[in-house]
Amino acid sequence: MTEAVTNTGGDWLRLIVGLILVLIFSQLNALFLVWLERKVAGHIQLRYGPMEVGPHGLLQTIVDGIKLVGKELITPFKADKKLFVIAPVLVFMPVLVPFLVLPFGPELIIRDMNVGLLLIFAFSTFSVLAILVGGWASNNKYALLGAIRSVAQNVAYEIPLLLSVMSVVLMVHSFKFSELVMAQQRIWFIFLQPVAAIIYFICATAETNRAPFDIPEAESELVAGFHTEYSGMRFGLFFLAEYTNMFIVCAVATSLFLGGWHGPFGFSLGIPGVVWFLAKTYFLLFVLMWFRWTFPRVRFDQLMNFSWKVLIPLSMLNLLVTALVLKFV
């Protein structure tokens, strides 16, 4: 199985088909997630959410997308025009790359690189740059504050995120997704590394700027944060990138801690791996949405304190304990 996955070096056809699939999947997924978020929000808040377009409003986001495309792209007076235009592109391009290495199923990895995990984190960090550029170029104080917050937050949460991932990598001795997932055939890493799993999920929430860590776009404080001045499809790109990012962090969480395409404790129950993978990922996405509609927002200094004073020491300790246990047990 592993050979089949890795023996794709010269398979150009597979790569091209994969890229097209990634493009289609990432778009559809983002549209679906926006719909899902509105539905989840609705049902938590005693409403139905979108109901009008399509069955249970399924086509609502497509219609909204068409509306966004049709809208005028406003560039504010005195904005840095080049950067202002580049930022939404910059935010959306890197979120496509991680799909190349995500292990959807035993046969469904487009490129199983030996630095797969690193690639994902390298590219997902890229979105901070786009947010900074967008916030800066808007020439809007709210946008600037949002961008500053975003940078500070991402720097703070990247560290515990990587440290928690590191403890899993130590156990498997690999950055390769296929090997990371294969190592969990018997028992998922969430049972062996519960602390790392929790830290990862908290940091992932913060990395994707989701509530309760949504301070870069805290709408009650900063109106809309870094994308205050964006309209039309430029705003739409920020929006889609956010939801695609959510999918990526949840997919990584699934492959690192929830056994990827494996069923629980080696029982696959005859369900294909890709279904297991997507089911677990969408469950985590649902949890993210659940967070958002349940928790109040933390304050900026509390957010920072939580990362530097709690998460980073804890994840370091976890890494240390993992290393010691692996060495001596």
Partner: peptide
């Protein structure tokens, strides 16, 4: 007030 602090759901309960 809850909405200002980022908790969006109590608004709907209170309005019910």
């Amino acid at each position: 007030h809850a909405h200002d602090l980022g908790a969006m759901t109590p608004l709907f309960y209170a309005f019910r």
